[in-house]
Design a protein around this nucleic acid. Sequence first.
DNA 1: GTGTAACCGAGACGGTACGTCTAGTCTTGTA
DNA 2: TACAAGACTAGACGTACCGTCTCGGTTACAC
Lengths: 205, 205, 205, 205
Amino acid sequence: MTDMTEALPISTGRRGGPPRSEEARLAILRATARLFLERGFGHLSIEGIAAEAGVGKQTIYRWWPGKSDLVAEALIEGFLMPEHFAPSFTGTLRDDLASWMRIVLDFVDDPGHDEMLRSLLAAGTTNPAIGERIRERLGADGDLVHRLEKGVTDGELPPTAPISSIIELLVGAIVLRVFAPSNRDDGEAERLVDVVLGTHTARGQ
Amino acid sequence: MTDMTEALPISTGRRGGPPRSEEARLAILRATARLFLERGFGHLSIEGIAAEAGVGKQTIYRWWPGKSDLVAEALIEGFLMPEHFAPSFTGTLRDDLASWMRIVLDFVDDPGHDEMLRSLLAAGTTNPAIGERIRERLGADGDLVHRLEKGVTDGELPPTAPISSIIELLVGAIVLRVFAPSNRDDGEAERLVDVVLGTHTARGQ
Amino acid sequence: MTDMTEALPISTGRRGGPPRSEEARLAILRATARLFLERGFGHLSIEGIAAEAGVGKQTIYRWWPGKSDLVAEALIEGFLMPEHFAPSFTGTLRDDLASWMRIVLDFVDDPGHDEMLRSLLAAGTTNPAIGERIRERLGADGDLVHRLEKGVTDGELPPTAPISSIIELLVGAIVLRVFAPSNRDDGEAERLVDVVLGTHTARGQ
Amino acid sequence: MTDMTEALPISTGRRGGPPRSEEARLAILRATARLFLERGFGHLSIEGIAAEAGVGKQTIYRWWPGKSDLVAEALIEGFLMPEHFAPSFTGTLRDDLASWMRIVLDFVDDPGHDEMLRSLLAAGTTNPAIGERIRERLGADGDLVHRLEKGVTDGELPPTAPISSIIELLVGAIVLRVFAPSNRDDGEAERLVDVVLGTHTARGQ
DNA sequence: GTGTAACCGAGACGGTACGTCTAGTCTTGTA
DNA sequence: TACAAGACTAGACGTACCGTCTCGGTTACAC
């Protein structure tokens, strides 16, 4: 049917028909973000997104399997929680980590973010990509690892320190705080960091 | 909350008519548990529960505000996750905590529990009572505190140790593991405990 | 489950729950009629009927299998084509039949009825009840038979006259006229009647 | 319709580009016929036809206004109901007509044809061309007229006989039979013919 | 030859409606 | 009054098609 002798565009996605509309894609993600922030994941509906975006429902179903995938992509594209938290490399390990933790906890404890974060968690129970994206936004996958590794080379942490476990504990404490809000006093960020670094005994707590 | 004085003939909380049917209540909770475990929180419906329990929908709406409350009560009554995890008091703090953590992590990592736990998390994002109940089941509210306090009196932990923060970190790591499964190698339980106790440097990790 | 020893309310339709709402039923049929007349059978939608009637879609699907059944019932209830055509018994058979036919043909040929009648035919291809109802409205099932039988007793028709075939031919000609409009000159009604009565040769056509 | 004057350089029907693909046209009509016979007019879809024919939807919309037109053309091309019924000219008018009617009624009463004929009727309520085509297939436009005219010249019918009305009645009875199936006994064909020819009294009915 | 115009298959688009499912409320009859 | 049953309005679900538009590619005629 088609000429086999020429260059053969190896594995081109083109299969006939017009290309996917980027305009529609962005309108959908924007609508998703807007409604998610406004009403939460539980009251998010494909129907509502389609209407808000001025798009047919099929255009959504054509490209996304379900609403949690929409949320995941909106998150990736930065329509949801554009913040990115990274520890600084300017002070001691303990101080850099503590100030990072303080910023994250301030964000998480902000009542204005509560609904959104709980909704994100709800969406995440369905879609692993959302969990990954949240970790990434918290800096847990890159910057945090780097900072801790620098702590090792700087001699602030023993070479045997289980870096990923430390991160797991810190991120876990953050997520738990969204899931089941606990004590919110001012020193909590430092306290958590001190526990995982073993520096609390040295301090006058 | 209702009627503390008994036997008051006039204007009591008792308002005439038959008392609440315990039979119906239990049938509803049992049906909730069965459908929750079978299909997950996302596919749980009041309609389905009523049908499964052989009960009118109104009987459910009369006593519970929403489905997450049903799940919370089913959890409390032990129809869901009857397990209760408590650390032992028989060895060193580090060992008691590590074996507790190992048992919890084994439970959490069991693929057969994954759906249920994620569903529980999803339900928890809506209803704080569920989060509290999960903490309680993990022993985080009582036994764990006691074990750590004993660690202080035993001199295994300094008096200044921030017990609640330590628990926050451990429980957080557990919840995070449900939310976003990470590395599942065998030493993780010990490693996490060692980090929060500051005992990891002493060990040959 | 239920006590089999007592009176047993033999086959009572009542199975608990409120009785069917007559109000909703009539609102639905009225809406069906209105939209049918306005837009025709092809553009009739359950969704539109529900909206027009101020009713949930499920209430329609609960009681009617499809839209042609709605149309059939609207027809039965007289919301559609309330006219009823019956031949008179006052003149000769030929004259009574001819004037009946003239009235029917005038109705059928009225451009204002064309859409409705074609739509009725379309609905009838799906649902036999509609065809029956149309025959009934044309008087084909009762009055016409009676008039022809009177023709036999009056000696205007031989006792062997195949009455039902005569009616079949007349009704067929009417239906065909809706389906595929043909010549509409003034004498057609008489001509058709004369043919089936064998009276045309006697006339100066 | 196209190009009346030849050789006109400007504003000819030909406007450049390849001629219409006969292959595509036939594939479409064949697919239309297949799906029409398989699923009926109500479940016929342009989308389905395009897929079945291996053709783009636009190729259909380019040449046909709607699906009833596709059905009409499929009917014309003989993909649907290829039968053609014509009365013979070999016996008396009454016998030729009766045997024609018997054949037509056998065809119409065949349960295997019922769905198709009702679908054809449904399509016909939308598109007059279909009605015309059905008449033509029944022989109602040509052969039947000729046979009746021969009956006049043979003296079997008076010169005043309203031939088109007779045909109207016969065809009407046939169509009515599809629309609302009635008695199907064996003598019906003869009886109908006898009524319109006025020959029934002469017979021992 | 090289445009230009219309053809073709493919399929994305904004929509409408489908028939199903569930939410939460209301209305029966029975105990 | 609680209960089982179930009808009610409301509206989201995911699917099927509608008719239009847009690709990339392919003919045919006109220059």
